[in-house]
Structures are given as C-alpha cells and as structure tokens.
C-alpha cells in the first residue's frame, strides 16, 4: 500500500483540523436527528397526565411498565411476527427480481428499451390512490383478499423504485467487467451472478433496506387487503392505538412505536457495514 501512505502524507498537515470539524458537524447533526427520537422515548416513559403537562417535561417519571402494558393491550407479538415474515418475504422477492430486471435495463442493448424503461418509471408517477380499487378488484376476483397474497404476488415483477435504483448502480460499474467475462466465454447470467451481483452489494443492501422500510411501515396496503385483526402487521396495529373519541394513550403509542422501530434500526446498524466495505472495482479487472 504505497499509494495509501502517500495519500496520507498529502493530507497530514490539515488532518487534525479536519477531524475536529467532522466531529463538530456530526454532533450538531446528531442533535437535530435525535430530537424526535429522544422526545419519543421521553413520551413513552411518561404517565398519561404527564404527556399533557404544561409546560412539557423532558424528563419523564420513567414508567418502564408502559412497554409491558403495550403487550397486554394489543396482540403486539402477533403483529410483530406478521410484519417480520411479510417483510422478509417481500424484501427478498422484490430485491431479487428487481436486480434481475435492472440488469437487463442497465447492461443489455435492445430495441425499445428506452420506451420500456420509461413505462417502468411511469408506474411510480401515478398516485396509487386511483389504482388501488381496480387492483383490489383483481385480487377480489381471484379470491385472494384478506390474505397477504395481494401484497406478495406483485413483488415478482420487482418494484419500479428498486429497478431504477439498481439500474443506476449497475450503470456505474465499468463495462470492461462484462467484456472480460464475454472473452472468457461466459453468458449474461454469469455476468449477472458472478460479477455484477457481488460487486453491487452496497447497492443491493441499500435497495433491500429501502424496501424493508417501505414494507415495514406500509399502512394502506394491509389496510385495504386484510380484514382479520390477527393478520394485521405492526403498522396497522399501531394505527389502531389512537382512540376515536376518548384520549389517545400517547405514552403507550410511543412505547409501541419504539418497539416497532427497533427491528429496522438493528437491521440498519448491522447492514451498514456492507456500505463501509467499499469494493475495489479495479481488483477484478484481471
């Protein structure tokens, strides 16, 4: 790593100023981004009257049992399990099929490709509120409403968002890679599975995380298709926490929300190392 040491040498004179600046920025950012989260935690640990105190209190009376209470009030464990399996299935399926489609759009030449890709993008532009009912009617005809199938089956077509995202990542990879494989006599599947898929791991991980968040938080899809409370995912179960007329138990709702964001947060914490692992693309140039 001789180049590495040279690079460090160039930067050393500013090194420590830069470091301090970075930390200052990070801490300022932290204050901004953690504000809602801290407030959420504080509310979750309050009694109901405390949530309405005036002026608002930052330090709660630490009602840890609110977290226990949540599990007593609603079948929270069941909701979580529904969310977990549904999210895993749809994320895997969407990411895989989208990657496949994205490869086609990114690396292969064909007539009419631009128009087709335009159609892919277009499907995102129409507000879903007007396609919801026709789509419901399709699945109603198929006898699949009140199950997760209407939410899972369409994932075999990938999602326009993920296809677009991965296409952009694939297009960022040098084309010499493909040529090298072709010279070696490999087909497109080889290029896709052996080269692009591993090389675009940061992109794939990102796409998967995005899809995860979307599925985990989606309220309207499950609302339209599911009619059995036992099948509800967390997002819908949480929305049911707000009272119609009497007081909404904000403390419990916040406690439930914290439990709900923990799985995606943990996932992110562990998945982000895939972003760190920059892949030295030239290494495979061979």
């Amino acid at each position: 790593m001789t180049t590495q040491s040279k690079k460090n040498y160039v930067h050393d004179e500013y090194g420590w100023i830069r470091k301090i600046m970075i930390y200052v920025l990070l801490i300022l950012g932290l204050a901004f981004f953690l504000l809602p989260v801290v407030w959420m935690l504080s509310t979750a640990l309050k009694t109901l009257p405390e949530t309405q105190a005036f002026p608002p209190k930052w330090i709660p009376s630490f009602q840890w049992h609110n977290f226990v209470q949540v599990f007593k009030e609603v079948p929270f464990g069941r909701f979580t399990w529904n969310s977990v399996w549904y999210t895993i299935v749809t994320v895997c399926s969407t990411t895989f099929f989208s990657a496949f489609v994205a490869f086609g759009f990114a690396r292969l030449k064909a007539r009419g490709k631009a128009v087709l890709f335009g159609i892919v993008l277009s499907t995102m532009m129409l507000p879903p509120q007007v396609t919801m009912i026709p789509q419901y009617l399709i699945f109603n005809k198929l006898g699949l409403v009140d199950s997760y199938w209407p939410l899972i089956i369409p994932t075999i077509g990938g999602s326009a968002f993920t296809i677009f995202l991965l296409r952009q990542f694939y297009m960022g990879l040098p084309k010499e890679l493909d040529e090298a494989v072709e010279i070696d006599g490999g087909g497109y599947f080889t290029i896709f599975f052996r080269i692009l898929l591993p090389l675009s791991m940061p992109g794939m991980a990102t796409a998967a995380i995005m899809e995860f968040m979307y599925r985990w938080n989606d309220l309207i899809g499950p609302l339209i298709y599911l009619s059995t409370p036992d099948k509800y995912p967390l997002a819908l179960g949480l929305a049911n926490f707000t009272a119609a007329f009497a007081q909404t138990p904000w403390n419990l709702l916040m406690a439930a929300s914290i439990i709900a964001i923990l799985p995606p947060l943990l996932l992110f914490f562990f998945a982000q190392k895939y972003f760190i692992r920059g892949i030295v693309i030239s290494g495979t140039k061979g």
């Binding site: 981004f33 953690l34 997002a235 929305a239 709702l253 947060l265 992110f268």
Partner: peptide
Amino acid sequence: TAFYAPSIISGVS
C-alpha cells in the same frame, strides 16, 4: 444509525 433513525418512524407517530 442515529442519523437514519428518524426516517424509520412512521405515520401517526
């Protein structure tokens, strides 16, 4: 993770 956290909170909350 901290910078990403607020993006996860959804809907009513």
